[in-house]
Design a protein around this nucleic acid. Structure first.
Length: 488
DNA sequence: GATAATGATTGCAT
DNA sequence: ATGCAATCATTATC
């Protein structure tokens, strides 16, 4: 939440900066409008019949003209007056001489200027900014660019390319920034164009009374563009800053973790304990699990869970389970029982179906929707159950769920009936646990006899290959374990 | 607030 | 690439 606040702040500050710049820009626009007043000031006398070579009053004349030029802008003239004055100057006999002098001076300055700014070296700073904005998806193509950049950022951050809430949050903020950036940029460009047009018109008009080469107009336009691009640079800089802040917040948020929802943990645990002999879900299985977790999560509160998170979870789980098996005994039993109940449900349903009645399958909440998944776990359920009830050793490989169902019935002696199928899961689990405690010597105490041992865990602490799941019991136990044989 | 639980990261080995 | 082991950092629990 501090994250979103900070981002909001950063976006606000960005907007504020942009407003500042907009103001700057507007003030520039104001200058451009005020520029109208220059119009009359530079008016010069037109060519005249006199060649201006007579000596006496010449200095005086030039002085007069210059004086008029210098002061003309200070005087507020109405249209008629201005016209008069203009005409007067234009008709002055010194006009040609002055004009040619101006031309000469212009020629010189023009050359020097041309020489000075011939090459327009691309500003490295601006290029950096441009590149960054492009890379971040702020500049460039409208759609996809942002998410691509976000994905890139996520990937760079450590592999969680497909990300969750933070990701979309990041994207939303980035889009916001992009929008502001583009709006402002457009405004600037528009203002720049308007200003350029205006100046060009001015120059064109003035070219009637003073020498203005196309080169000069070009140069003027260049100056204007440079001015505006320097403002744009500020905008780009601010945008970059905003993106950097946003990004750093986003990356920092990586470490911020949220516990998975109960349902998600249930699902993962179920898979883990039902594949205890080989708790290494394939890529597909991980995807499936991630999807399942996210689906259940979407019904409640929490964040979606990604494949890499599933991988993390299994990595953590394996290591922690192995480190302290005793601590996980209860959990293992619980989930084994749960799985058993599920399998029993499935089996019961199957049996009932095969008996031509049409009972609705009880909604256990743990039932696998995916058929393949279901088969897979059903198989391991068989294994687990067999282990539980026979006290391990190879054997089993019950051909189908029906058999397992039968084996349960025969084992329990009492309690479990097909009719119970519709009852709620927890009670069934409890029942089952009770039954187990009676029949299989269930021991609740930590570190006590484990009726449910990690058969797949080999002596060196690793899990055995998937192909030989529970058929071999290692003679020695894993770290901190106790005897796995709890059979009666 | 101390401690446990837990999700994420890192460095290493394969 | 993937998993393990150690560790970090946050969250939950008491």
């Amino acid at each position: 939440m501090s994250f979103s606040i900070c981002v909001a702040q950063c976006t606000d500050s960005l907007a504020a900066t942009m407003d500042d710049q907009a103001r700057i820009m507007q003030s520039i626009g104001g200058v451009s409008l005020a520029g109208h007043s220059v119009q009359g000031g530079m008016a010069l006398p037109p060519p005249h019949g006199h060649d201006g070579t007579d000596g006496d009053g010449r200095k005086q004349d030039i002085g007069d003209i210059l004086h008029q030029i210098m002061t003309i802008t200070d005087q507020s003239l109405d249209e008629a007056q201005a016209k008069n004055r203009k005409h007067g100057l234009n008709c002055h006999r010194m006009k040609p001489a002055l004009f040619s002098v101006l031309c000469e001076i212009k020629e010189k300055t023009g050359l020097s200027i041309r020489g000075a700014q011939e090459e327009d070296p691309p500003d490295p700073q601006l290029m950096r900014l441009d590149n960054m904005l492009l890379a971040e998806g702020v500049a460039g193509p409208e759609k996809g660019g942002g998410s691509a950049a976000a994905a890139a950022a996520a990937a760079a951050s450590g592999g969680a390319a497909d990300n969750s809430i933070e990701h979309s949050d990041y994207r939303a903020k980035l889009t916001q920034i992009r929008q502001i950036y583009h709006t402002e940029l457009e405004k600037y460009e528009q203002a720049c164009n308007e200003f350029t047009t205006h100046v060009m018109n001015l120059l064109r008009e003035q070219s009637r009374t003073r020498p203005i080469s196309p080169k000069e107009i070009e140069r003027m336009v260049g100056i204007i563009h440079r001015k505006f691009s320097s403002i744009q640079m500020q905008l780009k800089q601010s945008t970059c800053e905003a993106v950097m802040i946003l990004r750093s917040r986003f990356l920092d948020a990586r470490r911020k973790r949220r516990n998975f929802s109960k349902q998600a943990t249930e699902i993962l645990n179920e898979y883990f304990y039902s594949h205890l002999s080989n708790p290494y879900p394939s890529e597909e299985a991980k995807e499936e699990l991630a999807k399942k977790c996210s689906i259940t999560v979407s019904q409640g509160v929490g964040s979606t869970i990604t494949v890499s998170q599933v991988s993390n979870w299994f990595g953590n789980k394996r290591i922690r389970y192995k480190k302290n098996i005793g601590k996980f005994q209860e959990e293992a039993n619980l989930y084994a029982a749960k799985t058993a109940v599920n399998a029993a449900h499935a089996a019961a349903a199957a049996v009932q179906n095969s008996q031509a009645n049409s009972p609705t399958t009880p909604n256990s909440g743990f039932q696998m929707k995916d058929e393949e998944f279901q088969l897979d776990s059903a198989e391991s359920k068989n294994t687990l159950l067999s282990n539980m009830f026979t006290g391990s050793s190879g054997s089993f490989n019950l051909p189908n769920s029906g058999d397992m169902f039968l084996s349960m019935q025969s084992l329990n002696g009492d309690s479990y009936q097909g009719a119970q199928v519709g009852a709620n899961v927890q009670s069934q689990v409890d029942t089952l646990r009770h039954v187990i405690s009676q029949t299989a010597g269930y021991n609740d105490a930590l570190g006590g006899n484990t009726m449910y041992s990690p058969h797949g865990l080999s002596a060196n602490g690793g899990w055995q290959d998937a192909t030989t799941p529970s058929s071999v019991i290692s003679p020695t136990e894993g770290p901190g374990s106790v005897h796995s044989d709890t059979s009666n």
